[in-house]
Nucleic acid binder design. Structure first.
Lengths: 123, 123
DNA sequence: CCAACCTATGTGCAGAGTGCACATAGGTTG
DNA sequence: CAACCTATGTGCACTCTGCACATAGGTTGG
């Protein structure tokens, strides 16, 4: 699929920030995939992400050493893979913060450019 | 490849906004691929995009009806495919603006969350 | 008690997008 | 005429996503 997003008609795809968001959620509170799916999709119900994508990203981040997991029994229900962030993960989170600040600036520049054009008769 | 970005070590990939940026550049001034590559990569030299990617995006946007092109002779050098934006392209640009405003808000929320955690002893 | 449901994790497949490298070609200049 | 800049495009390998499906433990109502 659209390697990032859905084409909803006249759509141009803009991308998400799955891994940083997952890292931040785990940084706030260690938890497991299913819970992270709920929390992730609660943040922005207009941009829901597939469970499979969350699980795959968690395994990816574990392979890269950003998080580590261990199986834990649940009080009620199947066992869960509990994730916690590592030192490397915290560093990656900080790096993601810098990149997001940069990206925010890019978006602001874009919007400024657009507004300048739209004002002076463009639209 | 990373379907969006480069992994630079401890990197988490964050994505670009190639099509909206190209649309905005063409909206500002009709031009051809080679020139758009220069202008695009001048906007943010830390996030250079391959020529092939630009050309493919232009053809894609033409197929979707956001731009249209015609061959034009250059005063000096090979002929160029000159692009201009269509009505549908302007609409797509507006839609992209809305999405980017939304995305900006998401980034700001993320950064706020992070700062809150970092302050109270996190890092 | 067992069917239905929620919790919980994961995989196979097709489609889309990117980088890298390469191909092609017109025009200018030393 | 070789080297270079302009200019456009493609093949390949790789990554990522959505959709659909598979699996499985535990709870609850009929």
């Amino acid at each position: 699929m659209t390697a990032g997003k859905i084409e909803d008609g006249a759509g141009i795809s803009l991308d998400k920030m799955i891994q940083p968001t997952l890292l931040l959620l785990i940084y706030k509170k260690p938890s497991h995939g299913y819970e992270l799916i709920q929390n992730y999709n609660a943040l922005d119900p207009t941009e829901m992400v597939e469970p499979g994508t969350i699980y795959r990203n968690l395994r990816r981040m574990e392979k890269e050493g950003f998080v580590l997991s261990k199986w834990e029994a649940s009080e009620s229900g199947p066992a869960r893979r509990q994730y916690e962030i590592t030192g490397k993960g915290v560093a990656a989170l900080q790096e993601a913060v810098h990149k997001l600040e940069h990206q925010k600036k890019q978006i602001e520049d874009f919007l400024d450019q657009y507004k300048k054009l739209a004002e002076r008769g463009g639209i």
